[in-house]
């Protein structure tokens, strides 16, 4: 029996899917912002040269990089409320879990970027009498940030893909809304294919844009 495609079902559920996409982007942006902040703190702790700061940061980074994001999500949503006595919304839980998870990866991007700045730059800055914070702010970070852009972008894309896991907490992002649409229409092939296409268009389109921006950034430094 030849399968009868019916893409009108996608058209009918498109508003639902686009609402889901908006939620996907909202969760992504929130978690990227959270991850960048947490990552910077972790990286500075790790590079501080003080053991009591560096070791906890290393433990957090290594733990979150070696455990599945889905476990983080479930732990924050189901287990953390028992400890803190406050129930979390699916959005709050997903954002918190993904922020820390991506923060662990962002921390390594920051660190690699900072370490990649040549010793001569540190020395040139110190030789004109800059204090450590000034060296970091005026010379090391501006140079490092440029080099961090490509790995940051890559990580951010990973994070957008990871937000799909929030569907398992019944957070109404794109995949979850697709599941709702499938349960109403019994058309998994059309709808899940449409979801894949939407993700692909957003991520691949964004990656093309970012590639152009990175090219331009590279040209500025030369």
């Amino acid at each position: 029996m030849e399968y009868q495609w019916d893409f009108s079902v996608v058209a009918r559920h498109l508003p639902l899917l686009l609402e889901g996409l908006a939620q996907t982007l909202r969760l992504s942006l929130a978690a990227i912002a959270g991850g960048l902040a947490i990552g910077l703190v972790l990286a500075l702790m790790r590079l501080s040269g003080r053991r009591w700061l560096a070791w906890p940061a290393i433990a957090v980074i290594e733990f979150f990089r070696a455990t599945p994001p889905l476990v983080h999500l479930f732990w924050v949503f189901y287990a953390l409320p028992i400890l803190i006595g406050v129930n979390l919304s699916p959005f709050a839980a997903a954002m918190l879990a993904l922020s820390v998870q991506s923060g662990a990866f962002f921390a390594e991007v920051y660190r690699a970027g900072i370490v990649s700045v040549e010793r001569g730059q540190w020395e040139g800055a110190r030789a004109i009498g800059m204090r450590p914070a000034q060296v970091m702010r005026r010379v090391v970070l501006p140079l490092a940030l440029r080099r961090m852009v490509p790995p940051f972008v890559e990580r951010a894309f990973e994070l957008v893909k990871t937000t799909a896991l929030a569907a398992t907490l019944a957070y109404g992002e794109l995949l979850y809304q697709a599941m709702v649409a499938v349960s109403r229409s019994y058309r998994p092939l059309e709808i899940y294919s449409a979801v894949a296409v939407i993700f692909f268009l957003v991520l691949f389109g964004a990656s093309l844009v970012m590639r152009r921006i990175e090219d331009r950034l590279r040209r500025v430094e030369r």
Binding site: F157, M179, Y192, A196, F199
Partner: peptide
Amino acid sequence: NTPVLVQLVWFYYAFPV
């Protein structure tokens, strides 16, 4: 450029169709 969860869901629910 697509989430792995979407891929698994697709292979489990859509591919058999």
